[in-house]
Design a protein around this nucleic acid. Structure first.
Lengths: 110, 110
DNA sequence: TTTATATATTGCAATATTACGATAAAAGAA
DNA sequence: TTCTTTTATCGTAATATTGCAATATATAAA
């Protein structure tokens, strides 16, 4: 055994887990932070910013894109990446739900 | 190679990634949702709720606890787990930062 | 066309995660 | 003490992730 039993959980649980998992690596957090900082779509200079080789960065970008957290646009010979707000909306609504639930909490046992 | 180059990133980036990573599995999302739903600390009946064996659930609980997302209290022969609000505050402040940054965004290229 | 630049893909080694049976540990009940 | 219940840990197999060199692809420039 050893494979994740994703089929045993709901689509919502799997989708949320995928989004969280995509953010579960410091390089990918760094990419998101950089994209937020430059306040515009940037291209492959992410490679220059990260302490990782180009294929590795490309792989991380692909994962963020697959998860729906960033978008990419072909711009001549370069590619312009930027935040995909939709993906962040989904995660954010989960944390909003958590916050609301916690505010309704009656006991504080632990 | 193949090991994560965590030492090349900041503590903040690694901490955030750890929190996100801990939520990056449907079983752990399910555990959090269950703890929110029961509106109180519950014990090992999480095992009865999840489609996983007891050692696997125990392992997932340990990861959530290490990440600072849940707390556990020994309660006789059972253990009482509940949400650790502090961990969720940390993640939430990251997403708040994302939201603020996105609202200041000028271009919409992608 | 050839050359240069930017990014993606392939293939593989190193490492990490997931899952669970077997077993241990801890505490209350008999 | 022994038995039962609850949870954790160990050991291990299956699988997934991480990282990069080599290579492929695609477009622009010369």
């Amino acid at each position: 055994m050893g494979a994740t039993k994703s089929d045993q959980f709901t689509k919502e649980q799997n989708d949320l887990a995928s989004l969280a998992k995509a953010l579960g690596h410091p390089a990918r957090i760094a990419i998101i932070e950089y994209l937020l900082k430059v306040d515009s779509c940037i291209c492959g200079d992410i490679v220059g910013v990260l302490p990782l080789a180009q294929p590795t960065v490309s792989q991380h970008l692909k994962e963020l894109k697959n998860a729906g957290l960033i978008k990419g646009n072909i711009e001549g010979t370069a590619i312009c990446y930027c935040i995909d707000e939709e993906g962040f909306e989904k995660i954010k609504s989960f944390f909003d739900h958590v916050t609301v639930s916690l505010s309704k909490k009656k006991f504080d046992c632990c």
